[in-house]
Computed example of a mutant assay.
Amino acid sequence: MINNHRTISMNRRKSIKTLLASTGVVFFMTNCGKPQEEYKLENIDDCADLTGLSEEEVAKRKSLGYEEKSPLEGDNCNNCQLYLPPTAKRKCGGCQLFKGPVNADAYCTYWAPKV
């Protein structure tokens, strides 16, 4: 009887592990083939234009406290560790936290000084 209980318990554990593993595989496979919505700063001429952003991305910017002009003297995106400065290929700066153009004089609550 004890061996039978142990066998049932081991089979149950194995079944649960298999179920969890297969659930992860199914989740990966269903999300793997989905194209990600692409947003490229290279396509932007007006750095204040947010028309290409999804509602979620615009909401994310707001939730991070993004402001076009910094309210704090000396703390702005241009001297933030997370800022992606403009390049020869893109007119506007960007941020590592959210999509869309970023003004060098802007600010958000996640501002971190460059080190």
Rank of each mutant, 00 (worst) to 15 (best):
L64Y: 15
L19K: 04
G65K: 12
F28E: 09
A48C: 09
L50Q: 12
E56K: 08
L82R: 08
Q96E: 12
T7V: 14
P35I: 06
Y66M: 02
M29R: 00
S15Y: 10
K89D: 14
D46L: 06
T18P: 00
L82G: 07
L41E: 02
P101F: 10
Q36L: 02
D46F: 11
G93I: 01
C32M: 03
W111E: 09
R13G: 04
K34A: 00
K34S: 00
S9G: 06
P113N: 08
K89V: 05
L97N: 10
G93V: 14
K14G: 12
L82P: 01
N76V: 01
C77G: 00
N11P: 00
S9W: 03
P71C: 01
N103R: 12
N31G: 11
G65M: 01
F98W: 09
E56G: 02
K40L: 14
L84F: 05
D49P: 04
Y66T: 05
N31H: 14
L50V: 14
A112Y: 10
G74K: 04
P35L: 01
D105C: 01
A59L: 09
E68Q: 08
K69Q: 10
A112W: 05
T87L: 10
M1G: 08
S15D: 12
Q36I: 03
Q96R: 14
Q81I: 10
I44W: 02
E57K: 02
A112D: 10
P85W: 07
G33I: 04
D49E: 04
K40G: 08
Y107F: 12
W111F: 15
N79C: 12
M10G: 05
N103D: 15
P113E: 15
N11K: 01
V102R: 13
D75S: 11
D75K: 10
D46N: 15
I8V: 11
L19W: 06
S63H: 07
C47D: 03
K14I: 11
R13M: 03
M1K: 08
Q96N: 14
E42T: 13
V26F: 06
T23Y: 00
K34Y: 00
Y83I: 15
V102I: 13
P71K: 11
E42M: 11
K114A: 11
N3W: 05
I16N: 07
D49M: 09
G74L: 08
T18S: 07
K40C: 10
G65N: 15
Y107I: 06
N11I: 12
F27Q: 05
L82V: 01
D46C: 14
D105L: 02
E68R: 13
